[in-house]
Computed example of a mutant assay.
Amino acid sequence: MDFIDAYSADNLTFLLNGFWLTLKMALIAIILSFILGGFVGTLRFAKIPVLSQILAMIVEIIRNLPLLLIIFFTFFALPEIGIKFKEVPAAIIALTIFEAAMISEIIRSGLTSIDKGQMEAARSSGLSYFQALWHIILPQALRRMVPPTVSQFISLLKDTSLAVVISVPELTHHAQIVYGQKSTYLVPILLFVALMYFVVNYTLSVLSRRLEVKRT
């Protein structure tokens, strides 16, 4: 194990560049999946005839597929029907689709957890269904959704490493290049990669716990 050479300025800069792309991919996928998942989860909670059943079926299919398969499908299969994406957009789209399905279920469950009497009281006061949902139900549900949502976002950050299979130049891909130069770099580089993931994910976990404490 050659820690000194493995942690040269050039190698660390190269790894940090890969990690920066990892964070950007995760952030974009988090924002998009929360928007899409929120929309789908709310529609499912509203139990709109036919539409809710179709969305439920799509969500269940996606949730029960491996993310790796979705990445492969996005990058390799879609070009067969004329839809082609470069590596990074393909990875972001795959992550967004997969995580949106997970988030939609969290949001639907969060909305369902609110006592039905809240909706009935809001409706009796003259609010429409969607006004009651937006002003009364959703604010309460969001506080309950914080821990599982943050946990899902932590999983998303870790899942970005799967993008290495389509040669996205993120942290894991750059790590492979660095330790491929010399076998003695393997352990030091993997330890550095593990540290990068741990720091960000642990920070998110601490933030989630503090938000949960404030909520209670």
Rank of each mutant, 00 (worst) to 15 (best):
S8I: 09
F14G: 02
F14Q: 08
L16F: 15
M25A: 03
A26N: 03
L27H: 00
F34R: 01
I35G: 03
L36A: 10
F45T: 01
A46H: 00
V50F: 10
Q53F: 06
V59D: 04
L65W: 03
L68D: 08
L69V: 15
I71M: 11
F73W: 15
F75Q: 07
F76T: 13
I83D: 05
K84D: 09
K84H: 09
K86Y: 11
I92D: 11
I97G: 01
I97N: 02
E105I: 00
R108C: 04
S109G: 15
R123T: 09
Y129M: 08
Q131C: 03
Q131K: 12
W134A: 14
I136K: 07
V146T: 05
P147G: 06
P148M: 05
V150Y: 03
Q152F: 00
D159M: 09
S161N: 04
S161K: 02
I166C: 07
T172R: 00
H173Q: 14
Q176P: 04
V178F: 09
S183A: 11
S183K: 03
Y185T: 07
L186P: 00
P188I: 10
P188H: 10
L191A: 14
L195N: 05
Y202D: 06
L204K: 11
V206A: 06
V206D: 05
L207F: 14
R210Q: 14
E212T: 03
